[in-house]
Amino acid sequence: MGNTLHKRATLGVITGALALTAFVAPAAQADEKVGNVKVSNFVINGGKPVVVGATGKKTVKLSFSVTDNSGAWRAAAQLYHGKSLETADSAAASGSTWIKCKKVSSTKSTCSANYTFKAGGNAVNKVAGTWKTWVIAQAKDTNFIQKDNAKSFKVQRATQLAGADVAPEPVAKGETVTVTSKLTRANWDAGTNAAYGNQSVTLQFKAAGASAYKNVKTVKTSATGDLSTTVKASVDGTYRYVFAGSAGTAAATAVGDTLDVK
């Protein structure tokens, strides 16, 4: 029985790893568990979304715990995009089938590996958004656990907000000023930053001496990503734009511009 389970787990890891490397469907994958082995405490990129620019690459760390009364033996994990591992349309591999596991106690180990996302490679526009973590772990008594999605996380296209510009300045109290900026987003397919039009962006203001910004209004970007709105000057302070982002697009905050009211 033990040898059978050992072979099943090993086969699952190897076929899964090969599938993600070559983008070939593996043998049927589904959550499985034999015995009391557990995986937990999954952390990807320190708990933050993985943000990739228009060019270059981003390497992130995955770590998790494996526990079993007999002790952890080995583990493997892959990051992928799609409904399931079988239908994944992109993935990030660790570079080897089995990843590094460090013994914490007689029953627990911490496993970790690095994964790289490359713009124009495994990071293309259509896969921005929610990714998943496939994992398998074996205990020393050959018990094993396999999860098709042990942890979901975001892979996002980087965004840029040009520094806010307030004009004219200085200005008399009660006069109207215009606050401008521009929103662009990484286009992984083209390898460039492109205008991000028709997006809601928040204009914020922090009065001189205040500790926090307050929302002023919501402004939509033009087709070319430009932002422009008017406000009445009342007191000295700083204006900035803030973009909240989405599942597949990173948030961004513009450098503020300070207004001097005479």
Rank of each mutant, 00 (worst) to 15 (best):
A190Y: 00
V201Y: 07
S181H: 07
T180G: 01
D189N: 05
G197P: 14
W188L: 05
G174K: 08
A207V: 14
Q204R: 14
A195E: 01
N198E: 12
N187S: 10
T184L: 04
K173I: 09
V179C: 04
S181L: 09
S200K: 15
G191W: 09
V201M: 11
A194W: 01
G191Q: 06
T178L: 12
W188R: 03
V201K: 13
A186S: 13
G174Y: 03
F205W: 08
A194R: 01
N193W: 06
G191T: 07
G191M: 04
W188I: 06
K182V: 10
N193I: 01
T184E: 08
S181Y: 14
T178A: 06
A207T: 14
T202C: 01
K173N: 12
G191P: 08
Q204W: 10
A194L: 11
T184K: 07
Y196K: 12
T184V: 15
A207C: 06
V177I: 15
L203W: 13
S200C: 01
L183W: 05
V201T: 07
K182E: 12
T202L: 13
T192I: 05
T178N: 11
G197V: 08
T178M: 03
T192A: 05
T178W: 01
G191F: 07
R185G: 02
F205Q: 05
A195T: 06
T184A: 07
A194G: 02
T176L: 12
G191S: 03
V177C: 05
T192P: 02
K182T: 12
A172W: 04
T184I: 13
A172R: 05
V179L: 01
A208Q: 13
W188Q: 03
